[in-house]
């Protein structure tokens, strides 16, 4: 059991927290038909982090977070500007902006001497969940030992804070979020600041993406923004239940994905673990596929009778 606490507990917790933090705003993005915002944000985080590294010269938490958050906001503003100024459909505007920013990030990264620090494109894409181990732990008792707790990988408290913040925000702004998501016009007549709510949602998504990105890479971020909420959408017609389902699916994906990545190959006779981030995304996809085939509310309203 000691090995579990040392090697697997923290990555597992970080994975679950990251999945939940992304799935919560993902529900609202999905219903607002902005699901791909998560995709765009997780691509533009890379240039943000590289620029932050160029400015500060170090890889520390706050500059990275600020850089990534700044890049996400720049991207959202740029997408909006391109869409309005050029009268371009939102999907194409998004495609123009996030590919260009990602390309700039890769170019900057290649041009910079990053040999001394751990920052590269592969890491940005699929993170290194497996490496976030808790070496100073020697059993469950360490959870109460301040000395051992000080040796926790810094990603865990950061991810926990981000997940808690997002859960809190979702709870506090539940009614305005729900109203403006389902009927923006009605919400506006009630005097709700719909534009601010919309921007706030994107910023919350960016916070989740940036916090999760550092620990688990962008591929989980995109998968968790979309797959658990999409599967949950096929399970129920009530927003409350949809959010609950999405949290359950996100947790299940993270746990099952981590376990399968770590032990699955051994069961199949292999010797090496596979990428946990990739496996978590894969499991979330399998859950979504099952929901698409079996979910009680999978069909469009009215489509069942026609088909």
């Amino acid at each position: 059991m000691n090995a579990f606490v040392q090697l697997d507990l923290t990555p597992l917790l970080i994975g679950v927290l990251a999945a939940i933090a992304c799935a919560l705003p993902g529900n609202f993005l999905l219903l607002r038909r902005q699901a791909l915002i998560g995709d765009a944000i997780s691509h533009v985080v890379l240039p943000g982090i590289v620029v932050a590294f160029l400015v500060t010269g170090t890889i520390t938490t706050w500059p990275m977070m600020l850089g990534a958050g700044g890049a996400a906001i720049v991207a959202v503003v740029l997408i909006e500007a391109v869409r309005r100024l050029g009268r371009i459909e939102p999907g194409a505007a998004m495609g123009v902006v996030f590919t260009a920013m990602f390309a700039a990030g890769v170019l900057l990264l290649e041009q910079t001497d990053t040999s001394g620090v751990h920052i590269d494109v592969e890491h940005a894409l699929y993170g290194s969940l497996e490496s976030l181990i808790w070496l100073s732990a020697d059993g469950w008792g360490s959870l109460l030992d301040p000395v051992a707790l000080a040796g926790l990988p810094p990603e865990l408290p950061r991810m926990a804070a981000a997940a808690a913040l997002i859960a809190l925000l979702t709870g506090v702004f539940w009614r305005p979020l729900k109203l403006s998501t389902f009927d923006e016009g009605f919400a506006a007549t009630l005097g709700l600041p719909v534009a601010a709510i919309s921007l706030g949602l994107v910023v919350a998504a960016a916070v989740a993406a940036v916090a999760a990105f550092d620990a688990v890479g962008s591929i989980i971020v995109i998968a968790m923004f979309i797959c658990p909420p999409a599967a949950a959408r096929l399970m129920t017609n009530r927003l409350e239940r949809q959010v609950a389902w999405s949290v359950a699916f996100a947790t299940l994906s993270a746990v099952l994905g981590y376990v399968l990545a770590g032990w699955g190959p051994l069961w199949l006779g292999g010797t090496h673990a596979v990428s946990a981030a990739g496996m978590i995304a894969t499991v979330s996809g399998v859950i979504l596929a099952l929901a698409c085939l079996l979910g009680p509310h999978r069909a469009r309203v009215g489509a069942a009778r026609e088909a």
């Binding site: 999907g91 998968a223 096929l234 995304a281 894969t282 979504l288 069909a299 469009r300």
Partner: peptide, 30 residues
Amino acid sequence: RTRLPEDAAIGAVLSVFFGFGIVLLTVIQT
């Protein structure tokens, strides 16, 4: 076939296929 909009379908397919591809890459590395 489902009530999910096309953008959700795009995001789901791209992230899941990419994630599975990464799994395969780590298999190949070993």
